[in-house]
Design a protein around this nucleic acid. Structure first.
Length: 429
RNA sequence: UCCUCGGUAGCUCAAUGGUAGAGCAAUCGGCUGUUAACCGAUUGGUUGGGGGUUCAAGUCCCUCCCGAGGAGCCA
């Protein structure tokens, strides 16, 4: 029975067996130092020629990086070992020799690493980022579970475009066109009338030909939707959610953030209460900073960074001109030309990580907006029904998982925040 | 889709228009505490494809393909 490397500290001075892959090897004529990775951690194994059989010694010599190996020996605390514990081998075996493994311990270019994404996953930075992603997803589920939300999985194959704006991936559904979902929101709103507080988390798809570090063709989104929640409550929910997730990452992923060389100081500052400015104020700030932008323009990446740089924690921007936002956003009662929508901009140039709004709950207004946006009324009949049978104010938001993970990890590109990124013209491996 | 930069050994990169090279990896040898170990040797090339200019092209021109960075759109 193999012992996970992670648990070796609990087995000091015991004979243990570790199975894994050879991460690196340094050897001399009579002693070899092998770094063995088993998925739970990396441990150094010391193979001395005088203490193992000839077969074991020969296997140590022929073992190449990333070969699958098995070592048996005594676990001993030792300051000279990376990790504090090392295994003094009594036996060593190569289970499968890796021949010409393409990724070395030296530098590689991004294109090469992406071509070898399936192997790149094995390297320390990638493992750390994916563990953070896993922790974030678990923290999301825990947050909603503890706050009594019900998980509602929204469909991935959909008959129409949710927002009518983005370009979607089209496929064939027994002779009819179908589209890969770009958001679960429209399906969550009816569920909110059934279960009150609901959320979905899953992959979403955009066929936009975006070629930036902040876009993927396939990305994961988490979207809560809450019945009888109005705009101010939405702001509070969003803030609680983000504070909870960041705290969880700081709490549980210290080691991974260290591997990623992430400066955690900016993350430590993510506490209540987040600054909150209106779209109008945002435009004024940008103009003051010398940007050429006028009321009615949308923010570019640089604009978001300038706005975020004004504050030491994430900042809400809300109340956008109705014309530039999705059709379903509730008008601001104080100024019907503004929508009760919010964006949350992350610090350090990570940009918009959350977008949310209060939804229109008046049937006739929503129907009019659907018409104004040139959307087919019949396709949205079911969505309008929610406003027909016991309508209710409700709000929700969507957060891009990869953007959040990239922010936590300090990654410069979303492609490292998801195991197998789908990017413009790139779908291999 | 547009703009900019790039494509030379398995990888990262050199090479005034004039004999294609280094480090790493791999292979072989040496070394009893290494930390991307070190030392010595060996192997490794249709310079992304096609066309053109020239006595001569990795280098200059055209074209196509691929990649990176940025823009727009957004999460």
């Amino acid at each position: 029975m193999a012992t996970p490397v992670r648990h070796l500290l609990d087995h000091q001075d015991e004979t243990v067996t570790v199975r894994g892959w050879l991460a690196n090897k340094r050897s001399s004529g009579k002693i070899g130092f092998l770094q063995i990775r088993d998925g739970s951690g990396v441990v150094q194994c010391v193979v001395s020629r005088s203490e193992v059989s000839e077969e074991a010694w020969d296997d140590m010599k022929r073992a190449t990086n990333e070969s699958a190996v098995r070592v048996t020996g005594v676990a001993r605390a030792d300051e000279r070992a990376p990790g504090g514990v090392e295994i003094h081998a009594t036996d060593f075996k190569v289970r499968d020799l890796a021949v010409d493994y393409p990724i070395t311990n030296k530098e590689h270019g991004t294109a090469f690493l992406m071509e070898n994404r399936h192997l790149w996953l094995r390297s320390s930075r990638q493992r750390a980022a994916l563990r953070v992603r896993s922790e974030v997803c678990q923290a999301i589920r825990d947050f909603f579970y503890e706050n009594e939300f019900t998980l509602i999985d929204s469909p991935i194959l959909t008959p129409t475009a949710c927002e009518g704006t983005s370009t979607l991936f089209q496929t064939d559904y027994f002779g009819d066109p179908a589209f890969l979902s770009q958001s679960g929101q429209l399906y969550l709103e009816p569920a909110a009338a059934a279960l009150g507080k609901v959320y979905c988390m899953g992959p979403t798809f955009r066929a936009e030909k975006s070629k930036t570090r902040r876009h993927l063709m396939e990305f994961w989104m988490v979207e809560p939707e809450v019945a009888f929640l109005e705009f101010d409550g939405l702001v509070r929910l969003t803030e609680q959610f983000i504070v909870s997730l960041v705290g969880r990452v700081l709490d549980r992923c210290r080691g991974d953030l260290e591997v990623l060389e992430r400066d955690t100081a900016p993350l430590e500052r993510v506490e209540s209460k987040f600054p909150h400015i209106s779209y109008r104020e945002a435009i004024e700030i940008l103009q003051r900073e010398g940007q050429e932008i006028t009321f009615g323009d949308d923010f570019g990446a640089e604009h978001e960074t300038i706005l975020a740089d004004q504050f030491d924690r994430p900042v809400f921007v809300s109340r956008f001109p109705t014309a530039m936002k999705a059709f379903y956003m509730e008008p601001d009662p104080e100024d019907p030309d503004l929508a009760l929508g919010l964006d949350l901009l992350a610090p350090e140039g990570y940009g918009e990580i959350v977008g949310g709004s209060q939804r229109i709950h008046d049937h006739d207004l929503l129907a009019a907006r659907i018409d104004e946006h040139g959307l087919p009324r019949e396709a949205f009949q079911w969505y309008l029904d929610i406003r027909k049978y016991g309508t209710f104010p409700h709000s929700g938001f969507g957060m891009g998982i990869e953007r959040f993970v990239a922010w936590m990890c300090g990654l410069s590109h979303l492609r490292e925040a998801i195991p197998y990124p789908r990017m413009l013209y790139k779908i291999y491996p």
